[in-house]
Computed example of a mutant assay.
Amino acid sequence: MSTDHSAQRGPTIFGLLLFAAVATAPSTGETFTCTPTRVWDGDGPVWCAEGPRIRLSGIAAREMDGSCRPGHPCPRASAEEARNALVELIGRRVGVAREGHILVDGPALRCRSEGSAGGSRTAAWCVSRKSGDLSCAMIRGGWALRWDRYWRQHRC
């Protein structure tokens, strides 16, 4: 006699992954800590040891292939210049992951979520003890441009 034990198996891997993604995504307006571990490009994502992946709010930087997406502001700085600047603003480079992300070590950032930035990223305004407001610093350095559509009433 066969018995169906599927109800006894517990959560699936997919269910656990979905729970982990939902559990680590800060809600709109939520303030959270991000200890940066890796950076992809000049506006993110920045991976946090605590779980979230952050896209810096209110700015646009070049994609790593050097392009700018249609409808996005397009700064003069290269993708590599912007990415390297963001790494320096949040900490120091400690290596390169095999996927190409820059591994970083730096002090915890204080961030405020603006909600989803697509995929599993959170749009956020982040402040570093080392460099202050990261979106403002990226604009001041010329590595990113202000994106009025998302800037809202933010002040540097």
Rank of each mutant, 00 (worst) to 15 (best):
R121I: 05
P70Y: 06
P107I: 08
A7N: 06
L18G: 07
G118V: 06
S6I: 07
G51Y: 04
W125H: 07
A60L: 00
S6Y: 04
K130F: 14
W125L: 10
E50G: 02
R76S: 14
A79R: 05
G91Q: 00
S57T: 04
R155A: 10
D41M: 01
I13Q: 15
M138K: 03
A60M: 03
P45N: 10
I59C: 01
D41K: 05
F19H: 08
C68D: 09
H154N: 07
V46Y: 00
T37I: 14
P36C: 05
T37V: 15
A117G: 13
T35C: 12
K130Q: 15
A61R: 05
V104M: 10
E30N: 03
W151V: 01
A20Q: 13
A79E: 08
I13C: 11
V96F: 13
R149C: 12
R53G: 04
T31G: 02
T33D: 05
D133A: 08
S128W: 06
L103E: 08
P52N: 09
A123Q: 03
D133Y: 12
W151P: 04
R155Q: 13
G71W: 01
E114P: 00
S120D: 13
A79V: 07
T28C: 02
R38C: 03
A97M: 12
A23E: 09
A137D: 02
G119Y: 05
G29P: 05
G42V: 01
W143R: 07
A124C: 09
G100T: 09
Q8W: 00
D133N: 15
D4R: 07
C126D: 00
I90Q: 01
P45R: 06
S120Q: 08
K130E: 11
V104G: 03
T12S: 15
D43E: 12
T31K: 11
C34H: 06
D148S: 15
M138Q: 09
D65W: 06
W47G: 00
C156T: 09
L86K: 05
W151N: 13
R55L: 06
P70A: 14
P107L: 12
R98C: 09
G71C: 09
E99R: 10
T33S: 11
C126K: 00
A60Q: 10
G66A: 06
T122A: 07
T35S: 12
S120P: 02
W125C: 01
F14M: 12
G71V: 05
P26M: 03
A97R: 12
D41R: 04
L145H: 07
G141D: 06
P52G: 03
R69Q: 15
C74K: 07
A117L: 06
D41E: 15
D43P: 02
G10L: 06
R69C: 01
G106N: 02
W147L: 09
R149G: 08
P73C: 01
D148P: 04
G66R: 11
R62G: 00
G106M: 06
